[in-house]
Nucleic acid binder design. Structure first.
Lengths: 138, 138
DNA sequence: CGGAATCCGAAGCGATACTG
DNA sequence: CAGTATCGCTTCGGATTCCG
């Protein structure tokens, strides 16, 4: 593989949380739901139990590979359950756990914040882009 | 809302976007703060005005390249201001805007959720990993 | 001090093919 | 239906160098 040398490459595991402000754990939750598809899956499952194909159809654009990876990670973190019925053809149901439902509250906060500031951000971007032509930042 | 045939079992609907399977602006805000460093910068700036080097020292592990990119994007989105003093050596100050301060409230919600569920997630992971040896999922 | 420019490995993700 | 395996492109991000 590409592991050429045995040097440790991971540095700075956490930020200094000694101050009065709590920044510990923020990266944890962002590493979990900050990816491209997790929140969309969670939002769909907030509506009720869903099968694999149902999820794929409910989240347009997701590949079955990413759907598999995403639900596996969510299951691993205890946010959803995966129930396999040994039928033919196979049937697998996904459902939010209690903790998964708790996550939907956080997701709602994200949605609310986004809805509240989307316009202002769009305007800020236009102004910045107009003022910084060809800066490479996007 | 058109989803009316089955009610969610344990808790309230919470996250219904109003549409059936519409992408609320959740991805917008996650594309903005879901990256590796943005929230950490915002958290640090929540303490007050900071200079470039101050930020770099306050966020251990960040490269100067990523710090530049991150503050540029935050500035572009109207979340922070960048003030350049034409002194020698140059001095640049970063500060949260009003909208940036509003973002800190959301970040606090993230931190609270993380602190509240970190242990449960860690335990779920241990159980899953023990039950699925060498699955490749991480 | 506060960047910009370049290089390059690592990670994310999509497309496709195959399986039980 | 519900995956798994492989490939390859694209993005992310760290390290380094140079510059006003």
């Amino acid at each position: 593989m590409s592991v050429g040398h045995t040097e440790v490459t991971t540095t700075a595991p956490v930020v200094s949380c000694g101050e009065e402000h709590e920044d510990c754990g923020i990266r944890d939750v962002l590493d979990r739901i900050g990816d491209k598809w997790s929140v969309l899956i969670v939002v769909e499952l907030a509506q009720g139990v869903r099968r694999f194909r149902q999820l794929q159809r409910a989240v347009p654009g997701i590949s079955q590979r990413m759907l598999t990876l995403t639900v596996r990670r969510l299951e691993r973190d205890g946010l959803i359950t995966r129930t396999v019925y040994p039928t033919v053809p196979p049937q697998v149901e996904y459902e939010l756990t209690t903790m998964g439902h708790a996550l939907t509250h956080l997701v709602k906060a994200l949605a609310d914040w986004s809805a509240e500031h989307r316009d202002a951000i769009a305007r800020a971007r236009e102004a910045w882009d107009a003022e910084h032509p060809g800066s490479g930042i996007r």
